[in-house]
Design a protein around this nucleic acid. Structure first.
Length: 843
RNA sequence: GGGCGAGUGGCGGAAUGGUAUACGCGGCAGACUCAAAAUCUGCUAUCAGCAAUGGUGUAAGGGUUCAAGUCCCUUCUCGCCCACCA
């Protein structure tokens, strides 16, 4: 018997798939299904187990959907801009373009080694000028719509990476990539007005299928709070605005607190208080974000000034304190120590008055009164800030803007896109907050496209979140050089009827990718979601996932895309920890490399099965190195079972030839006779048809519910049952189809051997998911469970056709075991559930 | 402090309110072998018992129900995310 050799089998089918690639068909007649997984950053370390889990899940779904008759688009690409490559380039004096190309080649090899059925004709790379041309073009749409603007603000600055950061990239005051303490730095920055979409980003979540932990996290991050903005007069001309969610507690306001950086502080502080206020402000300014947050006790100083309570007319002292943040609301609060714990702590420390008792109106009444009295109005605030979009690094998309001394900020004309990164010798970032591009005079100095005078290019680049904010759209039309994607392809892959695309814009020849003036897509389309299912990491919930929703919603408003939301459904996969429960990391030396597992001899199929079998897809769980041994054993057993059947068939065929008969006619198979192996007996689940039906149903139900671990368990159970029978080639071929989403190489190999000359598709890739007869699931004999007071006391086998309430009641009460438990106790009632095969006798 | 989620064998985990621990790992015993590995077979929650069998058992306590791992309340523990957000 031929032994299972994963290396040989996998190489054979990987070569086959190179020759016969899985291509998604534009405008295909079958229903479309876009299966998206987050594209990787192609680091020099190659794939890690997290990628392997994500892309394996995606591949299982893609292959399953193909078997169910879908036109599946399962694309892949590379999010290749970013600091690690730049740092690698600086250290090793290699151009980042060269390092990236090398890493991409390595990743692509690993993709194929894992048997992932991506449409390799659609590979994209965000650092390719033909790709970032459109990232730049889309940026210009934001600019033209007034959503990209420059502002000089105190931004988060990573002193190690020497670049500005978005709010979302700062975690606990540290840069999420390198863990360096973030500083504040005043710089002129490009910003994207994501705050304009704050409400839409919340509302849009109602239209899509996101798990609540993802939706809630986004909602929390956006941080909508409804309240009122109130004005407190200091004198005739000076008024302090505060934001409160509790305008009903106004009567309890006993002092005001401003953030130390509040612009009015200088103006209102009295002469006497000035020295103390100044030194306090200086002290606060010297603290890092983290130090400031870690200060347990609140501190503050009195400005010497007072504001007038708009209702009572009392004089409220104005303080400055570090617990009030300039970045939120108005940077000023009315302190109500009666109700707010922070205010009370502060009031107690500095001996400020606390009102014990006052009447609370409803919030609605309070706002009404405030509006009538004219010192305030309803106000909604968000925690979300505008997106700082400038980075002072080489390895990113140049921002396509030209600064002209006369015309000001001028967008690069569309015809001049892409603004390509110049080839340079040095990529080192600077300490000045200026991009290294600024030193490349030959690139920086240009003529103004408006007036032709000497002008300078913008030298900041985009953050690495830019290219990934729209990449899924590029998969729909990856090689288009006239538009980011042709409208008809956008419509097809978004699942929107072609009629929704306006006539004159359907062709890509005369179309520059749609324009702001003439929307390609009419608004009001039903949200089908361009991407049917998007699988990715939970860590991107408030970064990439939020950013790309923002971009897409803006594109929708511009008529550039047909659906209001990019992703119809999102799922987040769990993290694979090291076997000891710690995170896998290079520094701990506990990283598992998928290629080494494959090369250890287990092969890609066993690895894929082990990952699918590990735990529910969304659960963080430790890696068990022995698990691969288990799934490998399962494959060996399945292989050997199939080989036995194939050999018997071949020996019959040989005999047929020598006796002059036709080779291997189907009827010659000496299989599927008695079904039950006479030596081993009948398995608990019944005969072959039953095993087959049960396994198909379980695997199908589990796949639909994304329960991969139990789907694999069902396959294992199925094999355990089959091994006790004498299975026929046809049933085993169906098992191969069930197995193929998980372990495609061995499934294709065994399938092609099992069906040789059989009247069914000779290649598994042309097969469809098997069906079963509902009747096969029915049992002749049913085990009925008898409980006494809810506890299992007896099991009785009953012919299936005899099951009804009266019969079950009578057998339950005549059962000897049940009788002994009841004894002489009177029976209160008997619950009989024929459909559940259960009787409960209550005594 | 806020939001979300989870606590089931030695381990990963299974279980539409209805037979708790499927499937796998690990372990034990047996078969095969000169021997080992591999493979195959059986056992493997816990207590009592030679056994049949019985008692207990899904973090702890309470509740709803004929019936609770599952639903409700309280408490504890762990994980993830956010965090002086007014």
């Amino acid at each position: 018997m031929e032994k299972y050799n994963p290396k040989a089998v996998e190489q054979k089918w990987q070569q086959y798939w190179l020759d016969h690639p899985y291509l998604a068909e534009d405008f295909g007649k079958k229903p479309k299904f876009v299966m998206l997984t987050e594209f990787p950053y192609p680091s020099g370390d190659g794939l890690h187990l997290g990628h392997t889990r994500e892309y394996t899940y995606g591949d299982i779904i893609a292959r399953y959907k193909r078997l169910r008759g879908y036109n599946v688009l399962y694309p892949m690409g590379f999010d290749a801009f970013g600091l690690p490559t730049e740092n690698f380039a600086i250290k090793n004096k290699i151009a980042p373009q060269v390092a990236t190309a090398r890493n991409i080649a390595n990743f692509t090899k690993q993709f194929q080694q894992l048997g992932w059925s991506f449409d390799y004709s659609r590979l994209i790379n965000t650092t390719d000028p033909s790709y970032y041309k459109w990232t730049q073009w889309l940026f210009l749409q934001f600019f033209k719509a007034g959503l990209a603007y420059q502002a000089e603000i105190a931004i988060n600055w990573c002193p190690r990476c020497k670049t500005g950061l978005a709010n979302e990239e700062v975690q606990n005051g540290r840069h999420e990539r390198c863990d360096t303490l973030v500083e504040k730095k005043n710089l002129k920055q490009w910003m994207l007005k994501i705050t304009q979409y704050a409400d839409r980003l919340i509302e849009g979540l109602k239209e899509v299928d996101f798990p609540s932990r993802i939706a809630d996290q986004q909602i929390n991050w956006i941080g909508k709070s409804t309240g009122a903005e109130l004005e407190f007069a200091v004198d005739e001309s000076t008024k302090i605005k505060v934001f409160t969610t509790r305008p009903d507690t106004l009567a309890g306001a006993t002092f005001l607190v401003l953030a130390p950086e509040h612009p009015l502080v200088e103006q209102i502080t009295t002469k006497d208080a000035l020295p103390e206020v100044n030194s306090y402000r200086k002290m606060v300014a010297s603290l890092s974000e983290v130090d400031r947050a870690e200060q347990k006790e609140k501190t503050g100083v009195f400005t010497g000034a007072y504001a007038i309570h708009p209702v009572s007319g009392e004089r409220l002292p104005i303080w400055i304190a570090d617990y009030v943040l300039m970045g939120y609301g108005e940077g000023a609060i009315m302190a109500v120590p009666t109700y707010d714990e922070r205010d009370r702590e502060f009031a107690e420390k500095y001996n400020l008055p606390i009102v014990a008792d006052f009447a609370l109106p409803t919030i609605g009444e309070a706002i009404k009164q405030i509006e009538q009295a004219g010192f305030g109005k309803p106000k909604v605030n968000f925690k979300l800030r505008d997106w700082i979009f400038s980075r002072q690094h080489y390895w990113g998309e140049p921002i396509p803007i030209i600064h002209c001394p006369d015309c000001g900020v001028v967008p690069v004309p569309e015809a001049d896109l892409p603004v390509e990164l110049p080839k340079v010798d040095h990529y080192e970032p600077t300490d000045t907050g200026e991009s290294p591009l600024a030193a490349i005079t030959g690139w920086v100095n240009v003529k103004c496209p408006n007036c032709g005078k000497d002008a300078k290019r913008e030298t900041d680049t985009m953050p690495n979140w830019a290219g990934s904010s729209w990449y899924y759209l590029r998969y729909f039309d990856p090689r288009n050089d006239k538009a980011f994607a042709a409208p008809d392809k956008l419509a097809y892959w978004s699942g929107v009827g072609a009629g929704k695309v306006s006539e004159q814009k359907t062709g890509s020849e005369d179309n520059k990718g749609g324009s702001v003036e003439e929307p390609v897509f009419a608004s009001g389309a039903k949200n089908t979601g361009a991407v049917d299912l998007y699988l990715g990491g939970m860590e991107h919930t408030t970064l990439h996932l939020l950013y790309s929703r923002f971009w897409h919603e803006f594109f929708y408003d511009q008529g550039l895309v047909p659906t209001p939301e990019p992703y119809a459904a999102r799922r987040g996969q769990g993290i694979i920890l090291a076997a000891d429960g710690r995170k896998m990391s290079k520094s701990l030396g506990n990283v598992i490399n998928p290629s080494s597992v494959i090369e250890d001899g287990y092969g890609a199929d066993a690895l894929r099965l082990a990952i699918a079998f590990l735990a529910p897809y969304d659960q963080t769980t430790p890696w068990n190195p022995e698990g691969v041994a288990g799934t490998y054993r399962f494959l060996v057993r399945f292989w050997n079972l199939c080989q036995g059947v194939i050999e018997r068939a071949e020996s019959v065929a040989r005999r047929g030839i020598t006796e002059g008969g036709s080779p291997s006619a189907r009827g010659d198979f000496p299989v599927a006779t008695g079904e039950i192996d006479p030596v081993r007996g009948e398995p608990p689940c019944g005969g072959m048809r039953k095993v087959r039906a049960k396994t198909i149903k379980k695997v199908q139900d589990n796949l639909e519910a994304m329960q991969y671990n139990t789907a694999v368990a069902a396959l294992m159970e199925g094999l355990n049952s089959l091994a006790k029978l004498t299975p026929d080639a046809d049933t085993l071929a169906d098992f191969c189809i069930l197995l193929s989403p998980f372990a495609p190489h061995i499934a294709n190999e065994l399938y092609s051997q099992l069906v040789a000359d059989a009247p069914r598709p000779q290649n598994l890739d042309d097969a469809v998911f098997p069906t079963y007869d509902e009747k096969d699931l029915l049992e002749d004999e049913v085990e009925v469970v008898i409980q006494v007071n809810g506890k299992l006391r007896s099991k009785i086998k009953v012919p299936a056709d005899k099951i009804d309430e009266v019969y079950l009641n009578s057998i339950a009460h005549s059962d000897a075991k049940v009788k002994s438990f009841i004894g002489s106790t009177p029976v209160k009632k008997t619950v009989v559930l024929p459909e559940r095969r259960l009787v409960n006798v209550v005594i």
